[in-house]
């Protein structure tokens, strides 16, 4: 039970990081971006390429399984995922927005972009499972019945730090305030002279960076495959909707809830059905409280 909660929170951290970016694009750019999950895959693989290219400068930093190359890899991956997000926006989404296409057209285009990115990853990196490090680290029994890997503590800590940073950014900076304003009332914001293009750009950069980190953490705790993003689409959307669109803290909580529910569900249903758990949560939320548990739009109203 304790183990299941810990596993759930760790998985939830990764879902939460992905969902933060998704909730921002859904709140600010106003379309459900199916390609968002592929930014996770892309980031994870870019970090893998960095780790493969760099010499292991100082070896693994005890007690973790990774060293400096992976930390550099995270930074490069953040840049790469942001770049991919911006490129997709410039090539596909912006022209469609400029034409005032319906939002469903954008959703649909994102469906196509997702397929393209996934296949590109498959083409470049191959389809078999890969790891950042082939060294196995062993879990430590923290409490009776609770085993944790050092890497998992890192994952949890990093997620908490990123959430705090993002929260402060949205509360304290002009850019952050513009983003919130745009999420809450686009017409008014446009009239009041907010630079919409700039806000859009930063929405992609923040979303892409968070996704890249999520991807690296995923690869660290599990493995890399071209399908990791695809399998995360449903948990990500569920977390974002559960938290309320545009709500960063909500997405974080939503991610944790989805992660916990997946992990705890194994205690009552066969694990084979676990991937359906986010769908059941989603259905329940849409029937009962479609605005999400934590209120839609705006970070803290």
């Amino acid at each position: 039970m304790l183990q299941a909660i810990a596993d759930g929170l760790l998985n939830g951290s990764i879902i939460a990081l992905g969902a933060i970016g998704l909730t921002l694009t859904m709140g600010i750019l106003r379309f459900a971006n199916f390609a968002h999950a592929e930014l996770i895959t892309w980031g994870a693989y870019v970090a893998l390429a960095v780790v493969a290219v760099l010499p292991p400068l100082v070896g693994a930093i005890a007690p973790f399984s990774f060293g400096l190359p992976l930390l550099i890899g995270i930074v490069v991956a953040m840049a790469a995922s942001s770049a991919l997000a911006l490129a997709a926006d410039a090539a596909v989404f912006r022209p469609l927005r400029a034409r005032r296409s319906e939002s469903m057209t954008l959703v649909f285009a994102s469906f196509g972009v997702a397929l393209l990115v996934r296949m590109a990853v498959l083409l470049i990196f191959g389809g078999s499972a890969q790891y950042y490090s082939n060294e196995l680290t062993f879990a430590v029994e923290v409490l009776p019945g609770l085993m944790l890997l050092p890497d998992q503590v890192f994952t949890f800590g990093l997620t908490a730090a990123l959430w705090l940073a993002l929260h402060l950014f949205l509360q304290r900076t002009t850019l952050g305030l513009s983003m919130r304003a745009l999420a809450e009332n686009p017409d008014l914001t446009r009239v009041n002279g907010v630079d919409v293009a700039r806000v859009t750009r930063w929405t992609w950069i923040i979303g892409g960076s968070m996704a890249a980190i999520a991807g690296v953490l995923y690869g660290l705790s599990v493995q890399l495959r071209p399908e990791i993003g695809f399998h995360l689409i449903l948990p990500l959307f569920t977390a974002a909707i559960l938290g309320g669109l545009g709500n960063v803290t909500g997405a974080l909580m939503g991610g944790m809830i989805v992660g916990l529910a997946e992990s705890l569900s194994v205690l009552i249903i066969p694990p084979e059905y676990k991937p359906a758990v986010p769908f059941l949560i989603l259905l329940a939320v849409l029937f009962i409280r479609p605005g999400g548990l934590f209120g839609a739009l705006g970070v803290a109203r």
Binding site: Q3, A4, D7, S221, R225, E262, E272
Partner: peptide, 14 residues
């Protein structure tokens, strides 16, 4: 039992 091509099998292993 586990479903193929998932990223994590922690729940199954637990």
């Amino acid at each position: 039992g586990y479903n193929q091509e998932q990223a994590s099998y922690r729940a199954e292993v637990s």
